[in-house]
């Protein structure tokens, strides 16, 4: 079994987990929630094995081919999905609430499904071109995608917040399964601060890398600029909240805008705007 095959199986496991988590919104049977969590843990374990396997496979391809599986669109999507699940499992453990799984698991599922099933995404392992041969590759990609994953979770929680804030507090409403709006609001903010730290580190490691590869730490390339735009949006959100005391709906909406910018930085720039990151396709 090779890693891409294993990872495509994981896609279906995450699909099943997503289904279970969403079902817990509707049926209040604890067994379904347990099933959802177990499925996710199994998926996450397999996912981790898949990433390690891919790493090993690259070394088996021949001398000079070996590299961490973080070098192209397929591998970044796999890691993005992995980070979302990791972050979600931590939140589930800390908050003892499974309803967030109903938004987090599908996000991880979509990322992995897109990687595994899209015909536009090459899942073969290819050796590194000279520009990517750097120790900064690993730290840059890891920091960026943990940041993106935090923003993704924040986006999911923001949607839950908006659903709950809008949909009243009917007695039988599935919204009762969601954490209180106060907790959702805090969770949006906490995941954003985590994402903001990692985005900052991602931008900085990228700048240091650019300086060691091209002799310029900042060249206003579209990818760089869009990551900075994303940074500005989240900086706006943080200042509105910390100093101006914005809460709730406004923060949730800003979180949605921020995540749109994240997605554009990730996909839009690669597919629409040309630049230095074009090898990431």
């Amino acid at each position: 079994m090779n890693s891409s095959y294993l990872l495509s199986i994981i896609t279906f496991i995450y699909g099943a987990a997503s289904f279970c988590y969403i079902t817990t919104w509707i049926f209040k049977k604890p067994i379904i929630g347990k099933l959802a969590t177990i499925t996710t843990y199994i998926g996450f374990l397999g996912h981790t094995v898949g990433i390690i396997l891919r790493w090993v496979e690259s070394y088996q391809m021949g001398a000079g081919h070996g590299h961490a599986p973080l070098s192209n669109m397929y591998e970044s999507l796999v890691f993005f999905s992995w980070s979302i699940i990791l972050l979600y499992l931590l939140i589930e453990y800390k908050y003892k609430n499974k309803s967030i799984g109903g938004v987090a698991a599908p996000l991880a599922f979509f990322a992995l499904a897109y990687a595994s099933l899209s015909p536009h995404i090459e899942d073969r392992i290819s050796p590194l071109i000279p520009a990517l041969k750097s120790n900064w590759l690993i730290i840059h990609v890891i920091t960026c995608f943990i940041g993106y994953a935090a923003f993704a979770v924040s986006f999911g929680v923001a949607i839950m917040y908006l659903m709950k804030a809008r949909g009243g507090e009917g007695k039988d409403s599935f919204l009762n399964q969601f954490p209180a709006v106060r907790i959702l609001d805090r969770l949006i903010y906490q995941t954003i601060t985590l994402g903001f730290l990692f985005l900052t580190m991602g931008i900085i490691t990228g700048a240091v890398w650019a300086n060691s590869a091209w002799g310029s730490y900042w060249s206003w390339d579209p990818k760089e600029t869009w990551s900075l735009i994303t940074w500005f949006i989240y900086a706006t959100l943080i200042h509105s909240r910390m100093v101006r005391g914005w809460r709730g709906k406004r923060i949730a909406l800003l979180s949605l805008i921020g995540f749109i910018a994240v997605m554009f930085t990730y996909f839009g720039v690669n597919y629409i705007l040309p630049g230095l990151h074009s090898y990431a396709q």
């Binding site: 706006t236 200042h239 509105s240």
Partner: peptide, 21 residues
Amino acid sequence: SIKLSVVLLIVLAVTSIIGTV
């Protein structure tokens, strides 16, 4: 004023898009 900071951050975010297009 922190309002100014927020406005400037938004203006920077929006105008920066131009140079990527």
